[in-house]
């Protein structure tokens, strides 16, 4: 029963990064049946992530379409989301989509006044890249530029 629900959720895409599903992102934390109600617990990536409301309704719709009429989507904060929860499949999809996937865990902050991490360019695979800004097009991304192919790219930063 829970497996069937996971399968449905694997088809719900993230509104900001449509190549990823909410399961790839590690946003879905728990699926439980409480009496008549199916309770899906989700956690935000960033606390101000504006996509959370849409993710919540998309999950609800997908489940309702598949016959689950009593659904509760619960927002939980703890434990806090980390990029470590992103699936390997998700990271591969990101890379293919042109966004560099997170490398390692929460190491990005150690760049304080030091050398920024050399992230691999998702296009030409060079590591001759540089950080343009720690804050990118969405809260979860940083802006990088590849010095090899000269293309700018997004990096999904570690959290």
């Amino acid at each position: 029963m829970s497996d069937a629900v996971w399968e449905i959720l694997k088809k719900v895409s993230d509104p900001e990064i449509p190549v990823l599903t909410v399961v790839d992102m590690g946003v879905v934390r728990k699926i439980e049946q409480e009496a008549e109600t199916l309770v899906v617990s989700i956690t935000p990536t960033y606390s101000g992530c504006p996509a959370m409301d849409e993710i919540e309704s998309n999950i609800r719709w997908a489940l309702e379409e598949n016959g689950y009429t009593s659904v509760e989507v619960k927002l939980i904060l703890s434990p806090p989301w980390t990029t470590d929860w992103m699936t390997d499949e998700g990271k591969a999809k990101l890379q293919e989509y042109g966004i560099a996937p997170p490398e390692g865990s929460s190491a990005d902050k150690s760049v304080l006044f030091g050398e920024a991490k050399k992230v691999m360019c998702p296009r030409c695979k060079s590591r001759n890249t540089k950080l343009v800004s720690q804050f990118g097009s969405t809260a979860c991304k940083a802006l990088y530029k590849c010095d090899e192919c000269q293309e700018p790219f997004d990096y999904f930063k570690c959290l």
Partner: peptide, 20 residues
């Protein structure tokens, strides 16, 4: 542009924390 985006990102983080 990059710094404009950075500040907006931070504003959003603050707002998210405020909501919680």
């Amino acid at each position: 542009l990059e710094q404009d985006i950075a500040l907006s990102n931070m504003a959003l983080d603050q707002l998210g924390q405020a909501r919680m």
